[in-house]
Design a protein around this nucleic acid. Structure first.
Lengths: 139, 139
DNA sequence: TATAAAAGGATAATATTAGTCCTATTAAGG
DNA sequence: CCTTAATAGGACTAATATTATCCTTTTATA
């Protein structure tokens, strides 16, 4: 439970690829997809979204492709996840008035709110730079 | 994203009702469902699961119904959620070997692991007793 | 033995996920 | 200008998960 979708997983992987491009070089969807083992057309859709949300920039035509819209240290994991999946929301109730008839009396409410806050906190601390720099090769 | 399903929501509400039963009195599914505004047959299924998982006990026949299997202070929100939704798992990768081809090289992995740990921590701290005792009536 | 409760199994409607495919648009290069 | 190479956008689909409902069976009580 509480799992990310493939979409988010792919989006993160794709942006990580961009963050690792030497000199912030432009990269094509086909290359990214095959390098990171993702379905090409699906990734294209996801990148379209990310471009609309302003996390990456796209260029069309020959020599086109994608680059990060900001420096890797200025893009957090939280932003990417929320751009793709929508706001982090352990429980529908947190969405606003009228969603939950127990809003005022539900004792679990504060727990979800805390969980939401802590989750965002963790994801906000992690930038693409940190991730890209990581040399993970555990035994 | 990262949202609970109705099933978990209902399961929690139902168990909260049991925790609030004076003297740990037995309660019938119909009463619980109508008191907490949940679809009766659906709740029945959920309670069936919870009984199998050993969180509640059921009695059949006249005078039958459900009670908590343990004291409210010995049942955590984490247990209920995991009983219904399965283990808390921000990312499929965390499920075990063979699930993720990037396990050894994925720099995001440790973040999910941390998130998982913190989430469980928060939910483990909350018991049914705490929740049941809560007098929430915010402005 | 009738009644009241949960257990179990089958089924269904709807939503979400995880894509694919085709056409249009845009840019570069010859 | 025309071809080629890239993304953008829209429509569509298959598989799976969610959110239930209904019917029959089992179990316990009075």
């Amino acid at each position: 439970m509480m799992a990310l979708t493939r979409k988010a997983e792919y989006g993160i992987r794709g942006m990580l690829y961009l963050a690792r491009q030497p000199g912030g070089q432009i990269a094509m969807i086909g290359d990214i997809a095959s390098a990171m083992e993702m379905p090409r057309t699906f990734l294209a859709k996801i990148f379209q979204d990310l471009a609309k949300k302003g996390l990456i920039k796209s260029e069309r035509g020959t020599g086109g492709g994608f680059v990060l819209a900001r420096l890797p240290e200025q893009i957090t994991l939280c932003e990417i996840v929320e751009a793709i999946e929508g706001p982090i929301m352990p429980n529908q109730c947190l969405m606003g008035e009228g969603m939950c008839s127990f809003q005022k009396t539900c004792p679990v409410h504060p727990v979800w709110r805390r969980l939401q806050k802590v989750t965002r906190g963790i994801l906000e601390e992690v930038t693409l730079k940190t991730l890209a720099a990581q040399k993970v090769d555990l035994p």
